[in-house]
Amino acid sequence: MAAELTTHVLDTSQEGPAEGVTVTLQRLDADGNAETIADGTTNDDGRLNEPLLTPEEMEAGTYQLLFEVGEYYRQRSSESTFLETVPVRFVIDDASEHYHVPLLLSPGSYTTYRGS
């Protein structure tokens, strides 16, 4: 598998992919300052159409993904959501590896892990 960064959002309350979640990737410098380097919106499979980082863009460092889940839930129902933006901060320590960061989502909680 190519060295790249990908994500996938599943809505456990709907038992399927979360379409329409805005995702922003930021790189953090040594002082913790964030620079936005990529963004996108999940498709009908809960994935972005392109990797957040391609093999050429992969480099070691600290990153964070921001998932705009509050807007996602407001667009789908009148049900309120406890979560607004879900931040996931992680480290790429080997830029030759594939990094996949899934988000399992519900209106009041989330889980993430390093996927394959």
Rank of each mutant, 00 (worst) to 15 (best):
H8S: 15
H8Q: 11
H8E: 12
H8D: 13
V9R: 01
L10E: 15
L10A: 12
D11R: 00
D11K: 00
T12S: 15
T12F: 11
T12P: 04
T12H: 15
T12V: 15
S13V: 03
S13D: 12
S13I: 02
S13N: 11
Q14L: 13
Q14D: 10
Q14N: 15
Q14F: 14
E15P: 03
E15M: 07
E15N: 05
E15L: 06
E15Y: 08
E15Q: 06
G16H: 02
G16V: 01
P17Q: 04
P17V: 03
P17A: 14
A18H: 00
A18E: 04
A18L: 02
A18T: 00
E19L: 08
E19V: 05
E19I: 04
G20I: 04
G20M: 06
G20E: 02
V21K: 04
V21T: 01
V21W: 10
V21Q: 02
V21R: 01
T22G: 06
V23D: 02
V23I: 14
T24W: 11
T24F: 09
L25T: 04
L25W: 03
Q26H: 13
Q26E: 15
Q26W: 15
Q26A: 13
Q26T: 08
Q26R: 15
R27N: 11
R27V: 05
R27A: 14
L28N: 05
L28K: 10
L28P: 11
L28D: 08
D29E: 14
D29V: 09
A30I: 11
A30S: 15
D31S: 15
G32D: 02
G32W: 04
G32H: 08
G32S: 09
G32N: 03
N33R: 13
E35A: 15
E35L: 12
E35F: 14
T36M: 09
T36Y: 06
I37H: 12
I37E: 02
A38W: 05
A38L: 06
A38N: 11
D39P: 03
D39Q: 04
